[in-house]
Simulated scan of single mutants.
Amino acid sequence: MTLNPPLEPMLAQARDAIPRPGPGGAAAELKFDGYRALLFTTDTRGGGLLVQSRHGTMLQSRFPDLVSAAGQLPSGLVLDGELVVLDENGQLSFPALQRRAATVRGAQALAAALPAHFIAFDVLQVEGRELLDEPYAARRALLEGLFVEHGLTPPWTLCPSTTDMATAEEWLNEWTRTPGIEGIVIKSLTGQYRPGVRGWTKVRRRESFEAIIGGVTGSLRRPNVLLLGRYDNTGRLRLVGKTVPLKAAAAQDVAALLTPAGPEHPWTGVRFTARWGSRVLLDPVLVAPDQVAEVSTDTAQDHGVWRHPVRFVRLRRDVPPERVPRLGHAIPPSFKGDDSI
């Protein structure tokens, strides 16, 4: 069977720590902060390249630099990987990727200024032969052979992989300090590729930060999600993130200290969406911005905004709001979500 878009990618379940490898062994790959994408080639000499997002959107018209490089690839190929973009300083940039993906108009000019790269971490079809039932170890060997045999060069990049869990731990602790790398993905060496199934494990490096509670979903008596802010250099309170739903004990602790916001609250009249790309609006209850929360979050940020929901750790009654670190630059007024693995 020949694979064609739309095709659901295999997914990963989030965990806090690297799991112990199973009997068949495991490999770890770097997790890049980009767009999950599937790549299909037809007649590559004629620019026959299709690029599908995780959710089935076709993106090739927005990335003409990838299409023009398709001649390096053989026909009948399906790759799974991460689509990333370099900014003007040569660093991986999620905002630059969003800019590239948002429009077809001017795509050629954007490609010259903000080049895209496809970081391949799996191969699902070679020369029209479907590989979903092959074990990961065999698919990885075919992927590495593909890069060697065809001498693939950027924008095609092979995702680093290791079977040494000590090396994987080092990657998680050290490599994630590099912008654009947010963690690792663990895969069973004997695992088959199962579209739509969360059969892999993703582990992101997490750090603790303080932020000001500016609003909640739910109610003052039973807050569900905290809306968190920080002041920018102009003294304006900016939304920087949202928590995952609070557990009952944490909600009770927070509720005891919340007070209703007055009419001068800086978020009065501001609309917040549930997540990036969503049109669903939140109906938050604004609160006096006088309580500080410690939260645990991964490294994915846009201009100081945490793109993934954060985890509430505890209240910091010893930290006044004015002592919370300020943002060094302006950020968008709404929180954005995730479109990765």
Rank of each mutant, 00 (worst) to 15 (best):
A211C: 08
R206Q: 14
S208H: 12
T190M: 02
T201H: 13
V185E: 07
S208Q: 15
Y193P: 00
G191Y: 03
V185F: 07
E207P: 01
L189F: 02
I213D: 12
E207Y: 08
F209T: 05
G196D: 05
V203G: 02
R198Q: 11
R194Q: 05
E210K: 10
G191I: 00
Y193C: 02
G196I: 11
E207G: 07
E210D: 15
Y193Q: 04
Y193G: 02
S188V: 05
F209Y: 15
P195D: 08
R198Y: 06
R194P: 00
I184R: 08
K187F: 11
F209E: 12
R205Q: 14
R205G: 00
V197Q: 09
S188P: 06
I186W: 08
V197E: 13
A211Q: 10
S208C: 07
F209R: 11
R204L: 13
I213W: 14
R198N: 01
R205F: 04
R206Y: 03
P195S: 09
T201A: 10
R198A: 11
Y193K: 03
Q192F: 00
K202M: 06
R194W: 02
E207T: 09
T201Y: 07
P195A: 12
I186V: 15
R194G: 00
R206D: 01
Q192M: 13
F209P: 00
K202T: 02
V203L: 06
G196S: 08
V185P: 05
A211T: 02
V203I: 15
I212Y: 03
A211M: 08
E207H: 13
T201F: 11
R205W: 07
E210V: 12
L189G: 00
P195N: 09
I212L: 02
I184Y: 12
V185G: 08
E207V: 12
G191E: 14
A211E: 03
G191W: 12
T190V: 08
R204E: 14
G191L: 08
E207W: 02
V203Y: 04
K187S: 12
S188Y: 06
K202D: 10
R198L: 04
I213N: 09
F209S: 05
R205N: 05
I213K: 11
Q192R: 15
V203Q: 04
T190Q: 13
G191A: 15
R206E: 09
I213F: 13
P195Y: 14
F209C: 02
G199A: 11
V185W: 09
V197I: 05
R198V: 00
F209V: 08
V203A: 03
I213P: 13
G191F: 07
V185L: 05
S188D: 15
G196Q: 10
W200H: 10
E210T: 12
T201L: 09
I213G: 10
S208F: 06
V197F: 15
P195R: 13
T190R: 09
A211N: 04
I186E: 02
A211L: 11
L189P: 01
T190F: 01
I184T: 05
L189I: 05
R206G: 01
R194F: 06
K187Q: 11
R198E: 13
I184H: 07
G199Q: 09
E210L: 10
K187A: 09
I212P: 04
A211R: 11
K187D: 08
